[in-house]
Design a protein around this nucleic acid. Structure first.
Lengths: 243, 243
DNA sequence: GTGGGTTCCAAACAAAAGTTAAGGACGCGC
DNA sequence: GCGCGTCCTTAACTTTTGTTTGGAACCCAC
């Protein structure tokens, strides 16, 4: 698996979600990529930066977050291998949030120049990348609904199910669960609640035999209850090219 | 003002935020637009629809919202003249939320076909439109922070200040205030709280002489207090082409 | 101008979430 | 194996927010 080309996860994802052709795939594969490794909890790019390259997650988990002037951090999204969390920096020059590693990560950096050249030569790839940023926005919209309207247990259920759907596409869901390497503090920051309350909610879902969170892994105990709680309608993920 | 060409507000906005050239501006101006009028509180396009055209707001206010299975509605954004709230439908075929008129509206519909042709002929305009959807996403990110991390009075202050910043660009802010035609119920739906609590918060801001909301208009009573409450850093709006 | 709908307002009470604090489990490095 | 730091856990208490309800103000249509 480590021997796989760097952009493999990206290409596989775009193929299933956006209908990439073989030529286009090849054009992406030959992009020059600089690989760097990061430990957990490191800031890759920071609010206010003006990056000159985009960051492809090759291995590990990242998150995007903003911090208010009072020091409260809100997690905006969780990112998995094959995603380019800061693709928007190609056209939005100043970053308006942080990109942080959640676990040890292998990241591939692709220069804006190379990406712009790719888009010039392959307008259809540009459209596919545009589409990718639109799905990103769709996920933010759903995240707003989650934080704004759902009771805390449903919020957690929704985050869990969304992550699972996305991990499925890259073949990272086992029968006995999947990885979700967030601390309770971070889960709270994702749901817009405190760590103490996050702990209460997690305990409740465990006591009700819905899901078990342990050591960065999720085990689903009752699929039906989970889905009912989550109020999950995956259409917003636009996982098929026709959507 | 009614005699102005339909795409005037759009073109003026893109010129200041994205650096549109005269040629590109002309290409946008000659787009075929179908104008239709809507009353207040009408659904323009609905969650699940597959629109074949995009909707430019010529006059009036609109909002985007999603409704959970329990019937709770979350407002995702408020839109003003010159914006194309459903530009994403060009590449995300199935709509994942509703677009609703807030006031009486004049809307200009532009077919996806015409827009795609525009993008093919003017790749730089495509990039500007892409950028526009990226700013959209940036606004969603800030909206998540607002709903997730700020206390209710700050939330309201933030929404007010953001709307004001955007209205300023299209010249719709007077010395004595600006239009914000939301009911208290809708303000609640935007903040992720109930209408009763929205009323409490509005009352508090009025009693503290910060802002006055009355008949769909905002009057700022204490600019300093408002900005302090709002925790507003407008960089996420990316209102200058260099950002 | 009257009547009916919507919006606004507000009180009383219930529930959810935040705060503070402190102990326990666990993992890692020495 | 010990100590240290991070994360998890829980309790007691406070604050914020939701719920229910009812009335007042306002607006528009007739």
């Amino acid at each position: 698996m480590d021997a796989e080309p760097i952009s493999d996860a990206l290409v596989r994802r775009l193929r299933t979600t956006s209908g990439l052709t073989a030529d286009e795939e090849q054009a992406i594969r030959v992009l020059p990529v600089t690989v760097r490794s990061y430990g957990a909890n490191q800031t890759i790019v920071r609010d206010g930066d003006r990056p000159t390259e985009c960051c492809l997650i090759v291995a590990g988990f990242c998150l995007r977050a903003k911090t208010t002037s009072t020091g409260h951090r809100q997690i905006l999204s969780i990112h998995i291998p094959g995603e380019i969390p800061d693709l928007q920096s190609l056209h939005l020059h100043e970053l308006d949030h942080d990109l942080v590693s959640l676990t040890d990560c292998t990241l591939g950096f692709i220069s804006h120049i190379a990406l712009r050249e790719l888009h010039r030569r392959w307008p259809n790839v540009a459209e596919i990348f545009w589409r990718d940023t639109l799905v990103d926005a769709a996920m933010f919209r759903e995240w707003i609904v989650n934080v704004g309207q759902r009771p805390a247990p449903s919020r957690l259920a929704h985050i869990i199910v969304e992550l699972r759907e996305r991990l499925r596409i890259i073949g990272r869901v086992d029968p006995d669960g999947f990885e979700m390497p967030l601390t309770q503090e971070q889960i709270g920051e994702a749901m817009g609640i405190t760590a103490v309350h996050a702990n209460r909610v997690i305990r409740q879902l465990r006591e009700d035999n819905v899901v078990e969170l342990h050591r960065g892994r999720v085990t689903v105990l009752n699929e039906m209850k989970l889905m009912e709680l989550a109020d999950f309608d995956g259409r917003y993920l636009h996982q098929s090219p026709s959507l």
